[in-house]
Amino acid sequence: MAPARRPRLAVWKFASCDGCQLSLLDCEDDILALAEVVEIASFPEASSAMSKGPYDISLVEGSVTTPHDAMRIKKVRRQSRHLVTIGACATAGGIQALRNFADVDDFIAAVYATSRYIKTLATSTPISAHVPVDYELHGCPIDKTQLIEVISAFLAGRKPAIPNQSVCIECKQRGTVCVMVARGTPCLGPVTHAGCGAICPSFRRGCYGCFGPMARPNTTALAREWRLLGASETDIQRVYRTFNAATEPFKTESEAHGD
């Protein structure tokens, strides 16, 4: 019997740190096996053999920050049967979306002597602001186990089994004592999307929200708790304004605080 055609995978980079696509290479135990069942058709960070589309799954890392990239993502979409965004940049605009709250020309002037050579948009936007997205994987960075689950699910034609609950549930699952209750450490866990495995509280640190908002979070109630624990208005604005700053409801909540 002739072997079935392997599904074709492509990995794309927009404005990002490379960390989420590195997660694929960090699957040291699985990467060679994955390459048996999937044709890694285009993954420039790992291979100079780049073959043309169409692709069955495109993994997209990074946000759209330039006019060129706003065009490029449309081409990627046209070539991809399924398009999955990986990480906070592609899913929420990333840390570079802090420019959305400022004047981008001021930002450029802070880094470069002249803006003459710099072509950039006033905002950093998620991929979903430009093209339809089939699945969004959260995290800054993503969790590699979840990445393998998403790839497997799309290959099998099923829905990825990725829980949509808060980090609190993961603390309970691993038996971590609540840092907010027991230590009075402000924590974003109650409003943050699960997926990391509740790493920060297990290191006696409050969650800082790198997986972005969970479904229907009560950000305002949590901000009130933070005030009771001694956080300032500026602290609250800062913590809602990091790697997922441009996502609702973190965006609106951050605007309710500050000086």
């Binding site: 920050t65 840390i95 570079q96 400022a102 450029i108 880094v111 710099i118 950039t120 800062r238």
Partner: peptide
Amino acid sequence: EPPRLFEALLRGRD
């Protein structure tokens, strides 16, 4: 590299 302007976005942070 699309500039991500870190040196600018760090201003005003703790």
